[in-house]
């Protein structure tokens, strides 16, 4: 049923084309892009931003915006880390994920309450809670970089396979955390596509009043959504520190803007209602490849920011231009049809 015309209106193909072009450029400049170990390295770097982007995309689809997820992830993982260290816990890492997810849930619930029940503007609320959570982490918990408990350290050493670059003999390990990403993606896909809850998220983003009248529990869905983002952030926090076997409370802060940029780059409509997991992952992949290949391309460190800035501007510019073009085309075809 999907026609070619419909596909050309989506932004996924454009992002994919951009990724391919960029890959070819990197390959040409370094001869290193399509080596097994480079791809594994990229996949590894993708895990954390991709985990964040799933929740971020869902929030944008619902018509909101969330800038608090890095703060939630940091505080949740930090408190978890400290609890486990203090209790000399040496069991399974699942407990770490559970605690962190639980803390994320609580923090997300505050967002959800303020946004869903009090109907406060999402950007302002999450800016506020973000400030609150980071402040708590550094103030009340006087957080600083710390060791990780053995459970997390062991988890960090679990690797799925090792990719070797045949020409140079370099090896890269695929961390097991990629499984978490895959699981989250599958879960999010099922949630968004096959549950009323997921369709409700799209419905709210399309028209909130209509959603309410149709019988969607708008408050409940928003509550769920921000809780979900919180849980996801908590999990991401543990994934991050286990991959580094080192708990640095500030390592994730400031990621919100790049993640949002990646999500929008992937075709999610800033005003809500539209967005796909495929597009989101492509957007994140593009940003990840970009930020992890500046040396491979051979851009001097001093000029990397200029390059990233230019790519954000050009990338979003193309997407913006393309949606406007689509809108125009649609208006004209409607006129023609009438």
């Amino acid at each position: 049923m999907i026609s070619l015309g419909r596909i050309s209106k989506r932004s996924e193909p454009y992002v994919l084309a951009a990724i391919i072009l960029l890959s070819l450029l990197i390959q040409a400049r370094s001869g290193q892009f399509f080596s097994g170990n480079n791809l594994v390295d990229l996949a590894r770097s993708l895990i954390v931003p991709a985990l964040f982007s799933v929740g971020c995309m869902m929030v944008i689809v619902s018509g909101g915006i969330d800038v608090s997820f890095p703060a939630i992830a940091s505080l949740a993982m930090y408190v978890t880390d400290k609890i486990l260290l203090a209790s000399n816990y040496s069991g399974n890492v699942i407990l770490a994920y559970a605690i962190s997810a639980g803390l994320g849930l609580l923090m997300g619930a505050l967002n959800g309450f303020l946004i869903g029940f009090l109907r406060l503007p999402t950007l302002v609320v999450t800016l506020g809670t973000s400030s609150l959570y980071t402040g708590l982490m550094f103030g009340a918990f006087s957080a600083s970089a710390s060791d990780v408990p053995p459970a997390i350290a062991r988890h960090g050493k679990e690797i799925l396979f090792t990719a070797t670059n045949p020409t140079m003999g370099l090896t890269s390990n695929m961390p097991s955390q990629i499984l978490i990403l895959i699981a989250v993606l599958i879960l999010a896909f099922l949630l968004l596509r096959y549950t009323m809850l997921g369709r409700g998220i799209y419905a709210i983003g399309g028209d909130e009043t209509a959603a309410e009248r149709a019988g969607f529990n708008v408050r409940g869905i928003k509550m769920f959504l921000y809780c979900f983002v919180g849980v996801l952030a908590g999990i991401t926090g543990i994934a991050r520190i286990s991959m580094m076997t080192y708990a640095d409370p500030s390592t994730m802060l400031g990621m919100e803007m790049t993640v949002i940029a990646a999500v929008v780059l992937g075709g999610t409509r800033v005003t809500g209602g539209m967005g796909s997991l495929t597009g989101t992952i492509l957007g994140v992949a593009l940003m990840t490849i970009l930020s992890n290949s500046l040396i491979l391309i051979g851009i001097p460190t001093y000029w990397t920011r200029v390059f990233t800035g230019a790519v954000i501007i050009i990338g979003t510019g193309v997407t913006a231009h393309q949606t406007i073009a689509t809108r125009r085309r649609r208006a004209q075809s409607q006129k023609a049809a009438a």
């Binding site: 370094s30 290193q32 390295d41 670059n165 040396i295 491979l296």
Partner: peptide
């Protein structure tokens, strides 16, 4: 970590 990996590859 990521920059080092890139450097050694390139």
């Amino acid at each position: 970590y990521e920059r080092a990996k890139e450097l050694f590859k390139k």
